[in-house]
C-alpha cells in the first residue's frame, strides 16, 4: 500500500463515471488499515462466474495472462446493449484479485462496451497503492487489460 493520499494524487483520466466514483470513495480511505478493510470487504463479496456462463475447465481464451491468481474474465451481452462482467479466481489466496473483480463488476457492469473500454490498468495503483510487488501489480493490471481488451473486441 502506498502512503495515505498518494492514490488521490494519481491522475487517471477519462474513466467511466461509476468507476471514477468508486475510486474516489476509496481515495477517502487514507489510513492503510481502513483501505485494506474496505478491499477485503469487497473480496468477501466475490461471486464466481455463474455455471450458465462457464464451467471448469474454463476456456483459455478467458484466462488473464500473467496473473498468478489464475483469474478468468467474461463479458456478457445484456439485452439492453450493455455488458455484464463475470470473473473466476482459482487461487484461493487471490484476495486482491477478488477485490478487484468485485470493484470492476460493480462499477462497469451495466455500461456499454465503449465505456468499459475506457478503463486503464493504472487504476491498480490507485486502488492498491504503489508498493505492490511487480508480479502482483502485473497480474492485477493484466485483469484490467483483459477486461478492456474484451470490451474493445465488441466494437472493433
Amino acid at each position: 500500500m502506498g502512503q495515505p493520499g498518494e492514490r488521490a494524487d494519481r491522475a487517471v483520466s477519462d474513466l467511466p463515471e461509476p468507476l471514477e466514483q468508486a475510486l474516489e470513495s476509496l481515495d477517502l480511505l487514507t489510513e492503510r488499515a481502513d483501505r485494506i478493510e474496505a478491499l477485503i470487504g469487497l473480496a468477501d463479496r466475490f461471486r464466481e462466474v455463474s455455471p450458465e456462463t462457464a464451467s471448469r475447465p474454463f476456456p483459455e481464451s478467458h484466462r488473464v495472462p500473467s496473473c498468478e491468481s489464475e483469474a478468468f474474465v467474461w463479458l456478457l451481452d445484456r439485452p439492453d446493449g450493455t455488458l455484464q462482467l463475470e470473473f473466476a479466481v482459482e487461487n484461493p489466496q487471490g484476495v486482491s484479485a477478488k477485490a478487484l473483480a468485485v470493484l470492476l463488476d460493480r462499477s462497469l457492469s451495466g455500461l456499454p462496451a465503449e465505456d468499459v473500454a475506457r478503463i486503464s490498468p493504472d487504476i491498480v495503483y490507485r486502488i492498491f497503492g504503489s508498493e505492490l510487488s511487480m508480479g502482483k501489480s502485473m497480474g492485477l493490471m493484466a485483469m484490467v487489460s483483459k477486461v478492456r481488451a474484451l470490451a474493445r473486441q465488441r466494437f472493433r
Partner: peptide
C-alpha cells in the same frame, strides 16, 4: 506476504 491484503484476511 506479497499480497498486502492477505494478513488482514
Amino acid at each position: 506476504n506479497e499480497d498486502p491484503l492477505l494478513y488482514a484476511t
